[in-house]
Amino acid sequence: MKKIGLLGGSFNPVHIGHLRLALEVGEKMHLDEVHLVPAYIPPHKQTKNVLPFEWRVKMLEQSILGVDGLKLNLMEKERPEASYTYVTLESFLRREPETELFFILGSLDLLTVPQWFKGRELPYLANFVVVDRHGQTEDEIHEFVTSFWPVDKIISGGWSLHRGKKIYFLSLPRLDISSSLVRRKWLHGENITFLVPGPVEKFLDENREDVVFYWKG
């Protein structure tokens, strides 16, 4: 059975932190591929400050060109509604029923899952790979997981859920980079070299007037 990781987001824009996270999780979890899934209509975001889907896709596509183990997945473009994780996972499994899915998210994001659409049901569709991005400890994650889901047993590096999948907690090298940091620096004319892949910096600079229109909108 093929093991595929899904890393979703607005990628507004994609930065080095996104790509290193995808590669690190792929290696640690021995995944066949990690799919980067840009949100067509990101939920919980003001879309007026988000670049057009086609632009974000172009930057992603150029950034992972020739990188083994990373793949661009455009499945969310086919849905006119907001990009809810539950619908994304369900749709992927409908197309690829023989796939074992691993949904990648940050530790702080995990703590907000109770507010997500069908959040409690998510780890019955895919394994969770929770990455420490904001300093949460394994004890904090353990307390949350065991209080929110029925846990069968503790496993190496995580938890096995009753009649569900597994939740893993990984502590990986942290790159303290965010898309909002990149946007802020770029809009102020500061250097973003090594924060984003070269094709991203080139695209932003070549389309400065249009990008400013969206990011300052």
Rank of each mutant, 00 (worst) to 15 (best):
P173S: 11
I154V: 12
S171A: 06
K45A: 03
W116D: 01
S160L: 12
I155P: 03
K71R: 14
V25I: 04
A82V: 12
V37P: 11
L101G: 01
I104N: 03
K216L: 12
E98R: 10
V182C: 07
E76P: 06
T137D: 12
N12M: 04
H134S: 15
R95C: 05
H35G: 05
Y40R: 13
I155V: 13
A126S: 14
L172G: 02
V50Q: 08
F103K: 08
Q136P: 01
Y84T: 13
V113Q: 10
K165F: 00
G66W: 09
G119D: 10
R163Y: 09
K45C: 02
E27D: 07
Q46W: 03
T137I: 10
E201W: 01
P42M: 06
F169K: 03
E190C: 02
D32G: 14
I155Y: 05
E209P: 02
K202M: 09
L21H: 08
S147M: 02
R95F: 06
L93E: 13
F203H: 10
E81F: 12
E121F: 09
P42I: 07
F11I: 01
V211M: 11
V145F: 05
V25K: 01
R184Y: 07
G158P: 01
I104A: 01
W186Y: 04
W186R: 06
L70K: 07
E98D: 15
E209R: 06
S160P: 00
E24V: 00
D132R: 15
E121D: 15
I155W: 02
S178T: 11
A39T: 13
S10L: 11
E190L: 14
K58V: 02
Y40F: 15
Q115L: 12
W159Q: 00
V50T: 12
G9K: 13
E209S: 08
L74D: 09
L36D: 05
T88W: 04
H15T: 07
N207A: 06
E96T: 10
L51E: 08
V145Q: 06
A82N: 14
G5E: 01
R163F: 08
L195P: 14
V200F: 08
L74K: 14
L170D: 07
V129Q: 00
R183A: 07
H142F: 09
R20E: 14
K165R: 14
W215C: 01
L70E: 03
Y168E: 09
P38R: 11
L6F: 06
L65S: 13
R94N: 13
D210S: 13
P150W: 02
T47W: 05
